[in-house]
Design a protein around this nucleic acid. Structure first.
Length: 739
DNA sequence: TAAGCTTCTGACTGAGCTTG
DNA sequence: CAAGCTCAGTCAGAAGCTTA
């Protein structure tokens, strides 16, 4: 018996049996931008169907080429451990996420048996699969030969490659259709067409029984239709233009091998790539990026629920990203021995979506079908409006996990009239969260606007979460995470349901900053958390879930006076006619009667202790919108910008003005109300502490008055007013002369 | 307690700048 | 050279506050 054969036998013994052990397994090298097929003599998987996600061990036999570089070529198989068989010994390697494979040990041929016996536990399908998984499972398995960065890195490569492929195909399809018929294809029909071919491509690469390799596009369409049954596909039409059909099928058929990719990845790409911007706007779709959905699903301890009870509900499901992610998560937790059929009937019972829009619901269904290849439909997608009636409540009673990315907008007047008393708050996310908390599930994961957690708007709901769950995480995300919205968002995850009033709960906040954005998007790496234990009993005020960074500093300065205690803070003047249209009435570059000298813009006009580019603002009361016109502009005050000056932590600049300047609503005026001079106040504001406070507590755009007012004043009673004032004046003088 | 007034905010919005 | 993207800055309408 040669080394390869004995490894084969030993792998069998460890539990890699039947189709979990593939001989001459063919897969695409996802690291290559073009199609490049690799064949590996033996590959061991933890689950069927095989994919890079459940690949455990790769076995190569040395013929000519060998060594770490050779092993690394097979990195995209996804197996963390490789064995390379020589006639008289076997070398064992660890695959790294980046860089070459690492040699671990050399096992003489006669000791192979012994080595497998010794490592029975560590090398079993379950052990490797759990150790690879991104999700923390209750008892984390750590194996020295598993690089936990491998899976995220591969996932990134595969997503990028799939995305590129689908985008290209789509582009060609649209161009060809336009050339032939002169107009753009109908999106839904194109969508269904691509779905048919994707399904066929998977069937083909996975060698599903039947002829899936024919070049006849219409034959393929019919076959897929037949496969999924008349109920699903019959009533809906696919794009009916033979040339375009042919182009899509030819491109897809000739594309790289899908064998080793995990179908739920395809499901993500399917919805992310295929839905165009206009459609998103039309349906108010702000789809959750797969990385966010997976992160949320992976951080929730599904494994703590009994296997039978893992019922997941996604209201406002859209395309059901959370369901696809949950499907993967649930499947990974199932016993390795379950059959396809068993898994499918388990999964379809447990995943429920509520989505009103029929197009989104269809995409959701198709995505789930792709993700649970090769099973047929049966998914529960309820087409109802959650704001009307009690569908949501009825479903909530049966669900143990609720995941949701609600629409962020407010209800319109018409909607409020339509829904009547069903709606208590104008803000849609508030309504969804409030109603979910009426029947608290065992765990929940919500995507919310940042203001919901950082501001006051949701304080009652935050408190309710804190009093229902013991383990709560909030994750603040930078903008541009949701590709189709530049709104800042926050994730709230709650688990370990427990209502007792005397319990201490654990709250953790993570803050993904602008600089962490790329590593976060690639590997879902979270920065260090700020954690706090909160005792419910000792909390009389509503419990807040968000801990700002640098909280030790804010804690230390808790008793200090706030900015509002030493100064009056107001926004600049506002006019009652549109500035864009009536600029010449409102702003003049020269002095005029009824006008006052002031500042109109922030950019390049104001810097610490210095301002330039003054203009004259119309102070006529007939144009006033607010009472800011009546503020004591003549008195000395500090002028600061209301919109941040940079995305860095330096976001505010202060200019001490004793010249009676007026400013518009894009500035804020700060009038001292103690004996602190304007120079001292500007020095405080230009210093790190105030900037840090705003950086820590604000969003990406504004320095809000509410926040400014709450900022603690450091050294309040030891400031040498005279010295600071004179230094500031001296600096200002130098700065003016420098110009 | 409700109406009216003020303040605050933004799944905005449009101009100008980069990028492919 | 247009299409996408970023960033500064509106302005309508909701929240919050005050007054009768």
């Amino acid at each position: 018996m040669n080394a390869l054969e004995s490894i084969h036998n030993e792998l069998n013994r460890l539990g890699y049996v039947d189709n979990l052990l593939q001989e001459d397994y063919v897969f695409d090298d996802a690291a290559a931008s073009e199609t490049r097929e690799l064949t590996i003599p033996l590959a061991a998987f933890a689950q069927w169907p095989p994919s890079y996600r459940n690949a455990c061990i790769g076995v190569l036999s040395a013929n000519g080429q060998s060594g770490p570089r050779h092993i690394s070529m097979y990195q995209t198989l996804g197996a963390p451990m490789f064995l390379e068989a020589f006639p008289d010994h076997v070398d064992r390697y660890r695959i790294e996420a980046t860089g070459e494979a690492v040699f671990l040990e050399s096992i003489p041929a006669r000791d192979i048996r012994q080595a497998f016996k010794l490592n029975k536990k560590k090398w079993s399908p379950e052990a490797i699969f759990r150790a690879k998984a991104i999700a923390k499972v209750s008892e984390p398995v750590q194996l020295d030969f598993v690089d936990i960065g491998l899976l995220p890195a591969l996932k990134g490569m595969i997503h990028a490659k799939l995305d590129r492929l689908l985008k290209d195909i789509l582009h060609e399809a649209v161009v060809s259709y336009k050339n032939i018929l002169g107009s753009k294809p109908e999106e839904t029909a194109l969508f269904r067409l691509v779905f048919r071919f994707l399904a066929a491509k998977i069937f083909n690469d996975r060698k599903h029984p039947g002829d899936w390799s024919t070049s006849e596009a219409n034959v393929i369409i019919d076959s897929v239709q037949k496969f999924y049954g008349p109920v699903e596909a019959g009533t809906q039409s696919v794009l009916d233009e033979p040339e375009t059909q042919k182009i899509v099928w030819d491109r897809l058929r000739g594309a790289f091998n899908f064998q080793n990719l995990s179908v739920e990845d395809l499901a993500f790409i399917y919805e992310n790539t295929l839905i165009r911007k206009e459609t998103r706007q039309q349906f108010g779709i702000h789809s959750t990026p797969s990385i966010i959905a997976e992160l949320m699903v992976d951080r929730l301890p599904f494994e703590l629920l009994p296997q039978e009870g893992r019922y997941v509900l996604e209201p406002c499901a859209g395309h059901g990203v959370f369901l696809v992610a949950s499907l993967r998560r649930l499947r990974e937790l199932l016993p390795v021995s379950w059959t396809d059929r068993q898994r499918h009937s388990y999964l379809k019972e447990r995943l429920t979506a509520i989505e009103l829009d029929t197009f989104a619901a269809e995409v959701c269904r198709l995505s789930l079908m792709l993700a649970d290849y090769p099973n047929k439909d049966g998914w529960q997608i309820i087409s109802e409006d959650i704001f009307r009636g009690d569908t949501l409540e009825r479903r909530l009673k049966r669900s143990r996990v609720v995941l949701c990315n609600p629409p962020f907008e407010d209800f319109t007047m018409a909607e409020r009239n339509r829904y009547g008393n069903n709606v208590q708050n104008v803000h849609k996310p508030y309504e969804v969260l409030r109603r979910v908390l009426e029947y608290p599930p065992d765990m929940l994961g919500f995507v919310l606007p940042k203001s919901a957690i950082m501001g006051e708007r949701y304080s009652d709901l935050q408190d309710r979460i804190a009093r229902n769950y013991k383990n709560i995480e909030t994750i603040a995300l930078p903008d541009r995470i949701f590709a189709f919205s530049d709104h800042e968002t926050m994730i709230v995850l709650a688990s370990e349901r427990d209502k007792s009033t005397r319990t201490a709960i654990s709250t953790k906040t993570f803050w993904v900053r602008e600089n962490d954005r790329l590593p976060f998007l690639e590997t879902a790496q979270l920065p260090e958390a700020i954690g706090k234990k909160v005792n419910r009993a000792s909390h009389t005020v509503p419990i807040s879930l968000w801990h700002p960074p640098l909280f030790e500093i804010w804690e230390y300065l808790k008793a200090n006076p706030r900015l509002k205690d030493i100064a009056e803070i107001h926004r600049g003047i506002e006019w009652n006619i549109p500035l864009t249209k009536s600029r010449d009435i409102l702003i003049s570059s020269d002095p005029k009667p009824g006008f006052k000298k002031g500042l109109a813009n922030v950019r390049e006009k104001i810097e610490p202790y210095y301002a330039l580019g003054f203009v004259y603002l119309n102070m006529d009361e007939q144009y006033k919108r607010t009472n800011a016109h009546l503020l004591p502009w003549d008195r000395p005050k500090v002028i600061v910008n209301r919109f941040i000056v940079s995305r860095s932590p330096w976001r505010i600049v202060a200019y001490p003005d004793s010249d009676g300047l007026v400013c518009r609503e894009n500035f804020v005026g700060i009038w001292p109300k103690t004996n602190m001079t304007i120079e001292v106040i500007s020095a405080l504001i230009n210093a790190p502490l105030v900037n840090a406070a705003l950086y820590a507590m604000e969003g990406k755009r504004l320095n809000r008055n509410v926040t400014l007012k709450q900022i603690p004043v450091p050294f309040s009673d030891t400031i040498d007013t005279e010295r600071v004032s004179s230094l500031v004046k001296q600096y200002a003088k130098l700065r003016f002369e420098f110009e």
